[in-house]
């Protein structure tokens, strides 16, 4: 798709959406948001970028293969679980290394294994959705000649 307006707008919109998705991810524990929503926003940003430019541009901008990103996300979630196992006594038990609770008041930074887990969720959603979308887009936007050649080869 070669729309000048879309292309120009996306140049501003996509980074903004990405930044916003991170914001949503991080505030998710207390306000509306979280890994799922953040991941979907980021995936939408990449989809938009792919529509405005092309899939190669998205792949270059991501720097990492989206399917790899989703696997890393799964790994991060598992790590968060193991962390809880190591420090606490159950797989996925949440751990808050920078948080001290005194008299019901919490002091310190509310960052812990739950956040790592949510980041993992975010990465999985971004990675899986983007990978799928890019592959589909790549495939669908090939010229009909390729398509025919492919098909005759397959039959």
């Amino acid at each position: 798709m070669n729309s000048l307006i879309l292309s120009a707008a996306t140049r501003f919109l996509a980074p903004l959406m990405l930044a916003y998705s991170l914001f949503i991810l991080l505030r998710g524990h207390n306000e509306p948001g979280g890994g799922f929503i953040g991941g979907l926003v980021a995936a939408t940003a990449f989809a938009l970028y792919a529509k405005a430019e092309d899939t190669g541009a998205v792949r270059r901008a991501m720097r990492i293969a989206p399917e790899l990103l989703s696997m890393l996300g799964l790994g991060a979630a598992v790590m968060a679980g193991v962390w809880g196992w190591w420090e606490g006594d159950a797989f996925l038990e949440s751990v808050w290394p920078f948080l001290v609770v005194e008299d019901g008041k919490k002091e310190g930074l509310p960052v812990g294994s739950a956040l790592l887990f949510d980041v993992g969720v975010y990465m999985v959603v971004v990675g899986a959705v983007t990978a799928l979308f890019l592959a589909l887009e790549d495939d669908a936007s090939r010229s009909p000649d390729d398509e025919d050649a492919d098909q005759s080869g397959e039959r």
Binding site: A135, D150, R155
Partner: peptide, 10 residues
């Protein structure tokens, strides 16, 4: 969707 898409291709 991808499955159907490939099915159509085949």
């Amino acid at each position: 969707l991808v499955l159907v898409y490939r099915l159509y291709g085949a």
